[in-house]
Design a protein around this nucleic acid. Structure first.
Lengths: 191, 191
DNA sequence: GAACGATACGGAGCGCTGTTCCGCTTTGTC
DNA sequence: GACAAAGCGGAACAGCGCTCCGTATCGTTC
């Protein structure tokens, strides 16, 4: 066995993933390495040691975010007051994650097979989580039934395409409207 | 009326278009501005004056190339010994042009409507030219009939996708094979 | 052809970026 | 506590986009 990694290295890797995720949301996946290093409070050498290329970093953040998003689903369900509130907060996390996801295609440039498998992983992992949130909200009578997880995730994903082009376009506002539409008139008496 | 442009400015613009086309083929559409300036033998200021953004330059080269390619069709037909030879040389020009075309999407970033119209212009202008070359070669019994201009152009275009990724992949070699296949066994006795 | 604005040119210079490299620090082990 | 080994930080270098302004060229007028 190769001797296991040093504790500080492990720590730094986690810090970097979190910092990169944050910076990606703020400045896009093409953000300067310096900015990510500063956000994480580490040197640039550290980033290059952990993630030799930008694609490595983007992929790592992607996996990390998928995982975080997946784990956040059940957690939010239990800590929020209502399933709908949990769903709203989950969607918010999901939107942040989409920056990374949309940057992935460029970062991987022409490795379309790698992209496919990462995309499949995304669907397998997040689809059920989103489904749980939707079911719970339906059970609680907070949203109308009938919408599929894939449909919602895809719709949100599409609303976020091209974000940043034009300051007048704010995907989050539209997504809020979408969710409002989903809950409108969905009381117990609804059919 | 604004006074017409100075002679040297017009000359430089033409020189730049030719130089940029050349450099795009050699180094891709992301080639450093300095390299294009050097190729054209002008200063960088001159490029920025004529084409404030990279997209402006790419679009201008694109139009210029479409035009050149369109005019080259009939010219080659009359100066080459056979229609097939003319077709081969035309395809060669076309392949060079595709570098610019494929770079266009990135250069325009998110202006998809601008891209659409440029693409339509491309089809309208070059489709008929390609058709003429194909017809002439068929008439001369040099290639089999039945292939459509759009089909050929699209096929060649697709073969050129991702060029430069991998030195082992040479689109021109495959395109040569394609043309050989088009002419194989297309003698007068063929039916 | 001489003189003179207007126009265009060239390239040094600035600021920002990716990437490397090596002296220094921290960690785990004996 | 001592000492490799592993890891870290960030100065330094190189390449790039873009601007700015002194200089050269052009077109016009006499």
């Amino acid at each position: 066995m190769p001797p296991r990694k040093r504790a500080d290295a492990v720590r730094n890797e986690q810090t970097l993933l979190a910092a990169a995720a944050e910076v990606f949301v703020r400045s896009g996946v093409d953000a300067p390495i310096r900015e990510i290093a500063a956000e994480a409070g580490v040197g640039m050498g550290t980033i290059y040691r952990h993630f030799p290329t930008r694609a490595d970093l983007v992929v790592a953040v992607y996996r990390h975010q998928v995982e975080a998003c997946a784990e956040a689903g059940p957690a939010l369900l239990s800590e929020e007051d209502s399933p709908l509130a949990a769903l709203r907060r989950w969607v918010d996390l999901f939107v942040d994650f989409l920056v990374t996801k949309h940057g992935l295609a460029n970062a991987l440039q022409s490795d379309s097979s790698g992209f496919e498998s990462l995309h499949a992983y995304f669907l397998d992992r997040l689809g059920p989580v989103c489904g749980e949130l939707l079911d719970a909200a339906v059970q609680a009578g907070e949203i109308r039934e009938g919408i599929q997880p894939y449909e919602l995730m895809r719709g949100i994903g599409n609303l976020c395409i091209g974000r940043g082009d034009d300051p007048r376009y704010d995907p989050r506002r539209l997504i809020t409207l979408l969710l409002n539409g989903l809950s409108a008139g969905a009381g117990p008496g609804d059919r």
